[in-house]
Computed example of a mutant assay.
Amino acid sequence: MQDPTNLNDQFAARSGFSPAEMLACLKCGKPNAPTRVNCLYCAAELENLSTGGEAGRLDLTPPEPHENGFSVIILPGARGEARPAAAVLGRSVDEVGKIVAAGVPFPVARVRNAEIAATLVAHLSNFGFSCATLADPELDVKTPPRRIRGIEFMTDRLRMFDFNTTAVFEASVDDIRLLAAGRHAVSRSTTSENLKRGKADTKKPEESKDQRDEKMLDVYVTGDERGYRIRTSGFDFSCLGEAKTMFASENIDLLAERIKELRAGIVLDSRYNDVRDLLDPVWEPDFHREAQGLHRSGLGRLSKQASDVFDNLNQFTKYSRMRNHLL
């Protein structure tokens, strides 16, 4: 079966329209010239999908960074038609197949308003998919889960100790519902440019790279949508007793299994690390530049430094919160 994304490029080249201008047929998924009313291949009517009135094209432009948006999520279980869904979403058939195969709720678009989200959900439903919509405030990355520094296993509950204060939280074993495992990855690329009398040196700037990767585990209980977060750093794994190892990365996995075994209904989701790349087109990792000013690089020498920083923390928080909302 031919990928409609490639077919779109080929047809666009022949028709004189750009790939972005082509209209996807919602029945067969094939591209059509924007001047057509009916599909060239199956004769289906090219429906009006956008708020702007253009036939056959849904405006999936994401909101501006300062605006709230709506995430459209494909739910697991339904066997929908990947080909027309891929054409509407602007993804490849292979990507849609991987999203369905992931077996977890998965965001496929983040759009500017509820009307566009509802329209997209309606058409994905026509293709056989079950969908849900979550607004940005429901994912609430500005209020991350509470970080905890230790856990005490009690007879019928967990006692959790806040990382930054003396606060203690208790949760009944019956209320523990979800454990979401993931990684916090930070990559920093720093360039250093030597200056001569306030002007840039003609030599190529020096570049250094630093990468950090840390396992995390989010714990959600009934009635508390914020949740609790465990990091490998700064956590006391003595609660594992004799099972504790010398390596924090092993201990956090053991802790997740220990909590999961407390009750049969607790869900442990470890899929984030496997599907992270597929999340990027919808929930982009944070990327920003940090200007670090002037630094002394030797006797009488100054250098100007700046860093490009990649950080996936907010992306994981969105995934974690989504799993809790849709459990």
Rank of each mutant, 00 (worst) to 15 (best):
A171R: 06
T133V: 15
R301F: 06
F316R: 00
P4Y: 07
R229E: 03
K260T: 08
P107K: 07
A185W: 01
L195T: 04
A181E: 08
M160K: 03
E67D: 12
A87T: 07
F287H: 07
G300V: 00
S92D: 14
T165F: 03
D174L: 07
G234E: 07
N113M: 00
V309M: 00
K318P: 05
D174A: 15
V108K: 04
K304L: 12
E47S: 02
A264K: 14
G80Q: 08
R36P: 03
K318Y: 08
R147Y: 08
N314C: 10
D94G: 06
P65T: 09
P145N: 00
N273Q: 04
E21K: 03
G128W: 04
Y272G: 11
G128I: 06
T317Y: 09
C42K: 06
P4C: 12
S189K: 11
K209V: 11
A101V: 02
S307T: 15
T190R: 15
K203L: 03
C39A: 11
L294H: 07
A85E: 10
V121G: 01
F287D: 06
V219E: 09
L60A: 01
F163V: 05
S130Y: 01
L139V: 05
A248V: 08
A12T: 14
A44G: 13
F169W: 13
T166W: 01
E21M: 06
A171D: 02
D3G: 09
S320P: 09
R263K: 15
R258I: 06
R263F: 04
Q2N: 04
D156P: 02
L134H: 08
R36E: 08
S92C: 03
P4H: 09
T191F: 02
D156V: 03
S71P: 12
E261K: 15
S297N: 10
T166K: 04
D136H: 13
A109T: 09
I99T: 07
I99M: 15
M322H: 11
L262F: 04
E261H: 15
V219N: 10
D9A: 13
L46H: 08
R276Q: 10
Q2I: 00
T143C: 05
F11K: 01
S307Q: 08
S15N: 06
R57C: 03
I73V: 14
